[in-house]
């Protein structure tokens, strides 16, 4: 046996990978009969981007149907309670006597702040929301130049349309819309005439 044959085998593996990392190298290896060596595995960000999977979740956003004041959120505060790192802060819109204000037949939040630096993208707020008002966005390029101020997203920054939701997550949006349509039909048929 050759002294050092294990070492030589290792060298062969590295050299094959080296050659395979060039396009002409892949062709050369195919000629010799070595197939299936993956070549370059790097994606040169930010010129080349990898499209994330549909379910990729990063930061929540509030959904509105049509116009930004027609948001689905009713300020029930369930997501604030269930959030594990406690990063949501909600205040319901109330008039001077302290009674909740209604718009489009629903209450609405006056303040809805989520802290980007605390949120851990766990999706529990989405799971527990009874009104499908909060969904997960997949935009992750949320850099800021200061440490605290611009990393707390307020209601205006969080509002995004339902069409946007359907665009980034088609299957999930279809499911949610079907559920909401069934619920609307049910309340319509249940309404006393």
């Amino acid at each position: 046996m050759i002294p050092g044959q294990g070492l030589l085998k290792g060298l062969a593996v590295t050299l094959t990978n080296f050659v395979a990392s060039y396009p002409w190298g892949q062709r050369l290896l195919k000629l010799i009969g070595i197939n299936g060596i993956s070549g370059m595995f790097t994606v040169e960000y930010p010129e080349q981007q990898v499209k994330p999977a549909e379910r990729f979740r990063y930061f929540p956003f509030l959904v509105y149907d049509g116009t930004p004041d027609n948001l689905r959120c009713v300020a029930c505060k369930i997501c604030e309670q269930e959030c594990p790192p406690q990063c949501i802060y909600i205040e319901m819109e109330k008039d001077e006597q302290g009674r909740p204000v209604k718009q489009h037949g629903r209450t609405l939040p006056k303040r809805f702040d989520i802290d980007v630096s605390v949120c851990m993208s766990c999706r529990i707020c989405v799971d527990v929301c009874p009104f499908d008002a909060i969904e997960m966005d997949n935009d992750f390029e949320l850099g800021a130049y200061d440490r605290f101020q611009s990393l707390v997203f307020e209601k205006d920054k969080l509002l995004k349309s339902a069409e946007y939701f359907a665009q980034i997550k088609p299957t999930e949006a279809a499911e949610v819309n079907a559920r909401l349509a069934a619920k609307a039909k049910k309340t319509a048929t249940d309404k006393p005439v």
Binding site: S21, G39, T42
Partner: peptide, 10 residues
Amino acid sequence: KVIARMQNRF
């Protein structure tokens, strides 16, 4: 460069 190419990266 050479070590990077051996490791499938630029």
